[in-house]
Write a protein that binds this DNA or RNA. Structure first.
Length: 350
DNA sequence: TTTCTTACA
DNA sequence: TGTAAGCA
């Protein structure tokens, strides 16, 4: 097939096709005598792929990478790239929603009083900007991609004197028990990792999706639970539309967020939850500030410097603040500490 | 006619 | 990527 045939068939311009070739995405054979390009079935397929990926906004450079990897027989990477795209789109969407809300508030202010609102508007803008900053500031400081393969083993053998994974199984089991999902309900596990919590729900026949910001973790999870739906994403931009889930759970993940980010995360969780949706947070935290100080003091006395550093490196929640948030937002809570550090907080809308 | 290359927007 | 020019 010649270039015009392909162009017509795929509804793009011949120029575009040449352009892709120039960028190294295609390499059609050129006829000896007149340099006309000849396209085989394979090239058509390739072009279709390019067009599809362009359609979802992937830049040429990225498409080249993906294509190269597919050539090497690597289908997984395409899936990953698409998931990544989706996750990025979702964070933009969440941000966009935020901006629209702020705009609405400004409009509202202007409608109400004509004068002296400039300051209020400025305040709104500042607040909006700050939210964006908080969202942007999330990054994986722990390199979960690298931990993925050994994670499960690590959890089992975490036998350091300061063992944050103590009572791991017990806590996860109890989480399932507290949520006690009914048949037909759909849940979400945020920071699902290798799927240890989500797997427990699946085992009882409950549908649950898992999100994680680490693609390697998701690969492990997928390997363990092939039937589970997983997506790339994080607490601050959950890659799902509003009102999708009956319950949201999360274990050993919430402490990777700063206090400010925790607030946003809770709002995000509420967004993807149905109106009666419940939340269960199983994580390392302190009952309150007092307990935290006490705990650190104790470690100091015992000379457990590593443990102190570990605690300071994470953002273990202040449980009392968490409970306050739930109360303010109309939830009834139930909580329990499995050990000094490990707590479960379960919240149901009243 | 059709495609190609090159240059420029 | 679109448009245009000059060629084969």
């Amino acid at each position: 097939m010649k270039i015009k045939d392909i162009a017509d068939k795929l509804k793009i311009s011949p120029r575009a096709i040449r352009f892709y070739e120039e960028k190294g995405l295609l390499s059609p054979i050129k006829q000896e005598h007149n340099q006309y390009r000849t396209f085989s079935e394979k090239e058509v397929w390739r072009l279709q792929t390019i067009i599809s990926l362009r359609e979802v906004g992937m830049p040429i450079g990225e498409i080249k990478k993906v294509l190269d990897q597919i050539d090497e027989g690597d289908q997984d990477e395409l899936r990953y790239y698409l998931e990544l795209q989706r996750a990025v789109m979702f964070s933009q969407w969440v941000e966009m929603k935020q901006i629209i809300e702020t705009t609405d508030q400004m409009i509202h202010l202007l409608k109400q009083n004509q004068l002296l609102v400039l300051e209020d508007i400025y305040q709104l803008a500042e607040g909006s900007k700050r939210l964006r900053e908080i969202r942007k500031n999330w990054r994986d400081r722990w390199n979960f991609d690298r931990q993925a393969v050994i994670y499960d083993e690590f959890v089992r053998n975490d036998d350091q004197s300061f063992n944050v994974h103590r009572n791991y199984d017990e806590a996860l089991d109890l989480t399932v028990k507290w949520v006690s999902p009914k048949a037909g309900e759909f849940g979400l596990d945020i920071g699902t990792g290798t799927g240890n919590l989500a797997g427990r729900f699946l085992a009882t026949g409950i549908q649950i999706a898992g999100i994680d910001q680490s693609k390697e973790m998701l690969k492990q999870c997928q390997r363990k639970y092939p039937q589970m739906e997983t997506k790339l994403g994080n607490f601050l931009a959950i890659p799902y539309l509003d009102g999708q889930f009956d319950f949201v759970v999360t274990s050993f993940a919430f402490h990777h967020l700063t206090d400010e980010q925790k607030q946003l995360a809770l709002e995000e969780i509420r967004r993807v939850l149905k109106s009666h949706g419940r939340i269960c947070i199983t994580d390392l935290m302190f009952e309150d500030q007092q307990k935290r100080i006490q705990y650190v003091e104790n470690l100091k006395k015992q000379g457990q410097l590593n443990a102190i550093r570990a605690i300071e490196d994470e953002y273990y929640a202040d449980r009392s603040r968490l409970l306050d948030w739930f109360k303010q937002h109309g939830y009834i809570t139930k909580q329990k500490h499995i050990n000094v550090l490990l707590h479960i907080v379960y919240a149901v809308p009243s």
